[in-house]
Design a protein around this nucleic acid. Structure first.
Length: 283
DNA sequence: ACCAGCTCCTGCTTGC
DNA sequence: TGCAAGCAGGAGCTGG
């Protein structure tokens, strides 16, 4: 669910509560996430100091002082929220936990960070930091869309010869890492490219133009604190508000916002997932 | 290698 | 109103 802008927003929001702080206790209430959360992993987390918070694609990375990194994936419905202690009283002694609060990080300064995930598509894994890039979740990821490795030549080469619709190609994390359904739909509309068009049959000029458009789309979403449709919240519980500026996503039947277009946003299904687009101005 | 479809899970919305 | 089907932001796996 959360795509790159949402995960990055959460990362930034968690920093004050977690960076440089020690996890006094990692409490696991439900270990059966997408992958099991073993007791031994919770024990290794308890007492560890978090040196820095990073992100790779949609994965949140907690770099620990012990040479290990906790990989956190929010799946479709996961949240990481900070709850502060109030009036010197430890919050975890007073605040009732909510349904689907699966993992609680009790921080040494009294705040706690709660991982909540109704659908349990989210998961965590603790791995050696020096072998992080080889981890099976991260090894095959393509370049970061906001980084230097994602450039026009890369995208042209990645699309070459591919017979899959461009919508599917941009969702392929090996081509570019961090886009999901929302931002692919939005970027393709900005680019005026039909989501149905085969990736390998788009003029190179148009593929190249897609690169800065993807960056701008993600940048705009980041500025808005991400998109809150259902479950997503920032680390302090605030909503994102990029959903108010969606051009196509979840706007089926609404008029296209492009000047002089006059089209109507339509919803189609590609690879079993909704795609929103304007048939008039996306070709 | 590539690609479409299925799957995991819960909860909200929609339609009868 | 009640109930069941459909759908949801991810992504690994299977099989053609």
């Amino acid at each position: 669910m959360p795509e790159l802008p949402e995960v990055e927003t959460v990362r930034r929001g968690l920093e004050p509560a977690m960076a440089g702080r020690t996890i006094a206790l990692a409490e696991v209430r439900r270990p059966d996430l997408r992958w099991p959360f073993p007791d031994a992993m919770a024990e290794r987390l308890s007492g560890a100091r978090i040196d820095a918070l990073g992100r790779r694609s949609k994965y949140l990375l907690l770099h620990l002082d012990r040479g290990e990194t906790l990989i956190v994936h929010l799946g479709m419905s996961g949240r990481m929220q900070v709850e502060h202690q109030k009036l010197g009283v430890f919050h975890h002694e007073t605040a009732p936990l909510a349904q689907h609060d699966h993992v609680i990080f009790h921080m040494d300064h009294g705040s706690r960070v709660v991982f909540n995930d109704p659908r349990r598509f989210g998961a965590m894994d603790l791995v050696a930091t020096d072998r992080l890039d080889d981890h099976w979740l991260l090894a095959k990821l393509g370049p970061e869309p906001l980084g230097n490795a994602f450039d026009e030549d890369h995208l042209v080469a990645a699309f070459a010869g591919r017979n899959t619709p461009v919508k599917s190609a941009l969702l392929d994390q090996r081509i570019v890492a961090g886009l999901g359904n929302i931002y692919v739909c939005e970027a393709l509309h900005r680019a005026g490219i039909s989501p149905r068009r085969k990736a390998g049959r788009i003029a190179a000029r148009r593929v190249r133009a897609l690169v800065p458009i993807i960056r701008d789309t993600l940048g705009d979403a980041l500025e808005a604190g991400g998109s809150s449709l259902r479950d997503y919240r920032q680390a302090d519980g605030a909503l994102g508000y990029f959903q108010h500026t969606f051009r196509v996503y979840d706007r089926e039947g609404s008029p296209c916002v492009t000047d002089r277009c006059g089209g109507t946003i339509s919803r189609i299904v590609q690879s079993g997932r909704s795609t929103f687009h304007c048939p008039q101005c996306q070709r």
